[in-house]
């Protein structure tokens, strides 16, 4: 085990170095294009948009590590934020708890259906997305009617600044992100997640309670999405049904760019963080350049594809080394 790990480390580092290089190049390019980019205010803005993406992509990474995927993260985030916003009158703490409870329930349903009833993860989470869309559309007219203004505390958390370029939401992310990295690398559950993704059958035969681990993964993913949703809602101040829709594809893209295999078993959160940073800086750059939305999308898609391609190439070369 130790021997394997010793051989693994330098390889992981090399791919991550490539990502760090890409990120540095993008930041530099941004700095050259826009003198203001390296200012505290602009840095704060970049961090502010990165944090929710990094949280959602973290959950996505967990699911992908087991060989699954969660396409309901955007709607989960939206639903949690919506409930928090509508329930703001109950008091801040209760409202946030209710939002998180929504995430918990969604994660449980997803997890049980996927792990116990073996519904294909893609279909289950697509279905969940549709269910949440329907419920929220009707709910906003009936049982979730009311003002959707976020509580003061959430707005401060989602959009406020601690000091200089450091927004409050970074603190939330450092906490949860640190937990994720530690959990994946150093805890039994983390190793089991990799084991299931590597070979589900072998893991089961080795005595891993695959279903429990998978349920835990989808619950964690939904909770992370819920936290991200509440933060996004806090940043905007109020909530609507399109709140987090634009985070779905970037969450998958961030994990993939960061080197997590969609087939499961390899990757990690460190790469995903870099992926999320790269995507946010890229987004900022395209905004600063003031390019057409059309050109922006084309560039965005092309770069995601190229990065994924390069990553696969370099990791293949590594396999060749062995």
């Amino acid at each position: 085990m130790t021997a394997v790990r010793a051989r693994d480390w330098p390889k992981v580092d090399r791919s991550l170095l490539v990502l760090v290089g890409v990120l540095a190049a993008l930041v530099l390019a941004n700095g050259v294009i826009d003198q203001g980019f390296l200012s505290a205010a602009q840095l704060r803005n970049t961090l502010l948009v990165t944090v929710p993406l990094a949280l959602i992509a973290g959950g996505q990474t967990l699911c992908m590590l087991t060989g699954g995927i969660d396409l309901s993260v955007a709607m989960t985030a939206t639903a949690a934020a919506y409930v928090t916003g509508v329930r703001a009158a109950d008091g801040t703490a209760l409202a946030i708890l209710e939002g998180l409870a929504v995430g918990l329930v969604i994660g449980l349903v997803n997890g049980v259906a996927i792990a116990v009833f073996r519904v294909n993860a893609l279909i289950m989470t697509l279905g969940m997305s549709a269910i949440l869309t329907g419920l929220l559309t009707v709910g906003s007219q009936t049982f979730l009617k009311g003002a959707t203004r976020m509580p003061e505390f959430v707005r401060e958390l989602g959009g406020g600044t601690i000091v200089g370029p450091i927004p409050w939401n970074l603190l939330v992310w450092l906490l949860l992100g640190g937990l994720l990295i530690f959990g994946l690398r150093r805890t039994g559950l983390g190793r089991l997640i990799y084991a299931i993704g590597g070979n589900r059958r072998a893991a089961r035969l080795a005595g891993v309670r695959v279903a429990s681990v998978e349920v835990a993964v989808y619950v964690a993913c939904a909770l992370l999405a819920a936290v991200a949703g509440i933060l996004i809602g806090g940043r905007g101040g109020s909530v609507d049904l399109q709140l987090a829709g634009s985070y779905l594809l970037p969450s998958v893209a961030a994990a993939v760019i960061g080197g997590t295999s969609i087939l499961g078993g390899s990757g990690g959160y460190t790469g995903t963080i870099l992926g999320a940073l790269i995507l946010s800086v890229l987004d900022t750059m395209l905004n600063v350049l003031n390019v057409d939305e059309a050109v922006k999308q084309v560039l965005y898609g092309t770069i995601v594809l190229v990065l994924a391609w390069v990553y696969i190439r370099t990791s293949r070369a590594r396999t060749g080394d062995r």
Binding site: A253, I262, V298, V304, L305, A308, I312
Partner: peptide, 18 residues
Amino acid sequence: SGVPDIIVTLATGFVWSG
């Protein structure tokens, strides 16, 4: 490329809608 189909089509989806 050997990049999984989900990823490739996710990316090309951006390109086509752009």
